[in-house]
């Protein structure tokens, strides 16, 4: 009983909010360009779904490519940095500066470098920059997170540097890497959407472009429809990554 209630609770809340929203729009005769009722948003979803799905896939695939690029780059750099404490000291401040600089601020620059005809490259590049840090810092932390007593055991048996890396530090870093990738994937989508907004042309027809396009024409219901798809895509991605992290940890721990 309580399980059913718990599962249904969020859906009931959403339904109540939608009903209230619809009723308010009708009662106060809110103009459709200002706030369309859910029924209008539903209609926009129904008529645009093919385009919206294509755009969602566009944004998602950019974000996933960016995640892959960021993952490879971040882990490679973390490995190099993990082998040399001096290099880590040298890299850290630069990494922090890059991390705290808002992606919107560097987007125009990346767009110039990528070339205005290649908005896709700029989007992948920007999303990769945002996705880089959670993986990098997770990997750097993870490589240092081995149990100190296990480190002593490796000292005792005179393990080589390679043995220590492959048999102790890399496996110890796995949970941190899983967590880093989970956070990074969410950020990659945000990065891709922000980059699409800045690119602002039809060069890359992702969800952000749909929102911009509908906004410019005051087709607010279509803006909402694109937002709904974006929200659903984010939720689905989050759920998939949670499941992936859980499965990864189960494999790592054996249960």
């Amino acid at each position: 009983m309580s399980r059913i209630v718990q599962t249904l609770a969020p859906f009931v809340l959403i339904a109540l909010l939608l009903v209230g929203w619809e009723a308010a729009c009708r009662a106060f005769a809110v103009p459709v360009y200002f706030l369309p009722p859910p029924s209008a948003v539903g209609a926009a979803l129904a008529s645009d779904w093919a385009t919206l799905l294509r755009s969602a896939w566009n944004t998602l695939s950019m974000a996933l490519i960016a995640l892959l690029v960021a993952s490879l780059a971040a882990q490679a750099l973390a490995l190099v940095v993990g082998l040399s404490p001096i290099l880590e000291r040298a890299v850290r401040p630069l990494a922090v500066v890059l991390q705290v600089t808002p992606v919107v601020a560097i987007a125009p620059l990346v767009l110039i470098w990528a070339g205005l005809d290649h908005a896709g490259r700029a989007i992948v590049g920007l999303a990769a920059v945002v996705a880089f840090f959670p993986i990098f810092s997770g990997a750097v932390t993870g490589l240092k997170a081995a149990d100190p007593d296990l480190e002593r055991l490796f000292d005792l048996y005179a393990a080589t540097r390679i043995q220590r890396l492959t048999r102790l530090r890399l496996p110890s870093a796995v949970p941190y890497l899983l967590e880093g990738h989970k956070v990074a994937a969410g950020l990659a989508v945000i990065g891709a959407v922000v980059a699409e907004f800045v690119a602002g042309s039809g060069g890359a027809q992702g969800l952000a472009w749909r929102i911009l396009e509908a906004g410019n024409r005051l087709q607010t219901a279509r803006m909402f429809a694109a937002l709904v798809v974006l929200g659903l895509m984010g939720a689905a991605l989050h759920a998939a990554l949670e499941a992936a992290e859980k499965a990864g940890l189960r494999w790592w721990r054996g249960r």
Partner: peptide, 9 residues
Amino acid sequence: FQAPTLAPW
């Protein structure tokens, strides 16, 4: 050691 100190993986 005081704890088993096993590699969980």
